[in-house]
Structure formats: structure tokens, C-alpha cells
Design a protein around this nucleic acid. Sequence first.
DNA 1: GAGCAGGTAGTCAAGTTTGATTAGTTGACG
DNA 2: CGTCAACTAATCAAACTTGACTACCTGCTC
Lengths: 213, 213
Amino acid sequence: MSAIRLLVLGAVRQHGRAHGYQVRNDLEYWGAHEWSNAKPGSIYHALKQMAKQGLLHAHEIAPSTVGGPPRTEYEITEAGTQEYLALLREALAARERTIDVLSAAIGFMVDLERAEVVSLLRERLRRLAEWRGAVTEHYVPVGGPEKLGHIGEIMNMWVHAADGEAAWTRGLIERIEGGAYTFAGEGEPFVGVLAEGVENPYATGDSHPGDIR
Amino acid sequence: MSAIRLLVLGAVRQHGRAHGYQVRNDLEYWGAHEWSNAKPGSIYHALKQMAKQGLLHAHEIAPSTVGGPPRTEYEITEAGTQEYLALLREALAARERTIDVLSAAIGFMVDLERAEVVSLLRERLRRLAEWRGAVTEHYVPVGGPEKLGHIGEIMNMWVHAADGEAAWTRGLIERIEGGAYTFAGEGEPFVGVLAEGVENPYATGDSHPGDIR
DNA sequence: GAGCAGGTAGTCAAGTTTGATTAGTTGACG
DNA sequence: CGTCAACTAATCAAACTTGACTACCTGCTC
């Protein structure tokens, strides 16, 4: 799974109704162009594709207000909401290799309820542990580990990565159980999109740091 | 950069001359189908593409020995070797987000000289530190970090990941400087491909662990 | 001796991603 | 008043990836 569908669905959903450029702006606001494949082409493609699949409803808008090319506004459908929640849950629980899907999922996690997020993160821990076991047990050749030579460093790296991720996940669980943040059904949600007409303080300025991706 | 070009170039190079199925088998032997996008389609595509670009030389082989579809054997060109080494160096030095490129690079690192590998890994450390600084400094909003809400967890995750990677990299540098493994120009190289006719002890058996990718 | 599991070698269509490019509008400056 | 830079909005071709599929042969079993 790439992060793009999750990001686009999440953006459209928070707006209620949004056209491609708005989505694109939100993703830039979130810094997604730095840590995911959120290029214009991918975003517009994802919108069209998901409209074709019935996850979004496309409204053709007359090219009225500012001129320029005709715009299409999208609205999330019931099927789209289901898909969004499914992607989000899977992203939180999966032992993902890429940081982009997990980043997106953390950004959207407050769309779920507190208890569910905790249980998804626990599932993540379980899968990390399972994988760690599989790597250490399964990839050791018959003649003992020393037969592996430098190849053993690959497994070492994986185990290291799994341990690091697990530690971070445990920390996050603790903070969430400790009452941090505001989740679904707990009142005033966190506002994560740009209001129309507000400038983006995190825009892709020249001063921005080395390519984060 | 995806890992596939590096993997395919490395495989062809170790064989001297190889056809698609042989490359495919090597990658499976290395477990690459578990942690990279090394599907048949991608492999054959990469071979053709790189032949078109002059990185590989394609020899058409009569469909002689066993029947079946006509095979093409590939040989790495001078340009291909240059590209391979460039990809390898970049993969070792880059603060990569994906584990697949780095896994491949670790597998091939002994094709370089010991001193160079160490210096590339130091460069990697430098870039990790730079990135860490950029994340902590740049992504803090005007009103202080508490304004970030749960979004701050994303940066927290990145910092965690960077620290973990740096720690592992330092460990690897230490082991290499301590004399571990056999690098280019140090005699008998490590044999990393299957000889023709030898069965693969790590084949995709049913007993293999949960999807590692 | 029919047929079926499995190995060998590769192709293909559909979907996705990338990077460049188009095309119009607005603001700013000399 | 022209024109140049930047913004808004989107498209396109080319490349890449995916998962399923073709086709052929060998060995084994019922």
C-alpha cells in the first residue's frame, strides 16, 4: 500500500468537499511531498481512480470564479469512508517498511477512538515481535550464523529496526493511554487543514531542510 | 531509487553472464522477494530497460538446450559497472527511507574497498545528523511545540528512526574497522550466488515467516 | 499412459508514479 | 504600460510495478 490513497481520502474527508489543488495544498501543508510520493500527478490520478471506483463522488464545476482550467470537486462517499477507515486501521497495525504510510496514519489517528488506536498499536507490537522472531530463527543457515558473513548484517539491521520501532510504539501507546491528544468522540477535534485563503507557514520555501524523503 | 536496478546489476555482475531466470533465482536466494519489489515482471523489465540504456549487453541465445521460450543472456558493460558502483555508493551513503535499498547495498558492500565503505557510512551518519537537526528545528510551529498536538508524534517518530539508524550504522562501522568480513582487494571474495544446479536452501517454502516486506 | 505437480523461462494488461509541461491569472516593478 | 515572476489548476508521456498468465518440459503416480 502506498500512502497516497490514505492521504487523499483523509484530505477530502476533512474538507467535506475539495478539488485537486486544495488536496495538493493540504498535503504540502502536512509536508507530505517530503516524505511520501505526493506529486501532483499522483494526487490527480488517485482522485480520478478513486472516483472511478466509487470511493469519491466527482462534481463537475463550471470554470467560473478565477478562470483557469475547469475544476472538479470531490466528496467522499460512504464506500470511501469505509475504505479510508480500513486503510487507516491497517496502516496503524501493520509492521510497515516505509515511513510514509505510518506518518500519514499518525496524522489521521485521531479520526478513530482512543481505545481502538491503542489496540491497533498493540497489534503492531505483536506483529513486530513475530517478525523479529522469524528473522532471527529462519535466516540462519545450517552451518551456524558465522557462515553468513557480511550478509548477517542485513538481518542485524532488520532486528535493530524492529526493536527501534517497537520501542517507539510502546512510547506512543503510553502517551495515548496517559490521556494525550483528542480522539474521535472526545469533543473539539484538532484542525488539520488550511482554511481557504490562509497562507501556509510550512510551504516549500528555499530555506527548507535537506530532502526529507 | 528503487532497489531493483542495484539488485539486478549486482546479480548479473557476479555471474559474468546471466539470463533473466538466473537473476530471478539469485534474488530469491537472497530473499529479495521478501523485502524488495523483485517480482518477475520488474526483473525482466529492468533487464530490458538497462540493455536499452547500454548498461547491459544482451546476447540472443537459440532456444536450444531445454526448449521453452527463447532466452536472452545479459552481460554487464563498462557503463553498467560504473552505474552499479554509483548506485551502490549512493545507497550506502544516503539516509534512505526504505529498507530494501539499504539491504541490497549491505549485501553488495564487499564489492568496494574497506576504507571506502567506512567513509560512505560516515557520510551516512553525517546526513542522518543533518536531517535530525532539520526535523527538530524546522517543523516546530510559531506557538511552540505544544501547538502541534498529535502531529508532533510524526516528528518524534522520525527522530527516533534517525537515532536508531545512526546507532546501527555506528555499530557496523566499528565491526568493519575491527577487521570483519572480506572486502574488494582482500583475497577470496564471499560467494553470494547459486552455482548452476545447486538447490536453494532458502527457497520460498510454505514454512517461511510472515511476509517480511 | 493420463494426467498432474512442479520446474523453467518469460510475457502481458492494468495500474501507478514521475517529471515535465500547459495555460490562464494576478501582482509588482521600472 | 509592458513584461516578468509567481500562483492556480491540471494534464501528459514515459517509465515502472504488479499479479496473473502462457508455454513448454520432466518426473511421478494412479
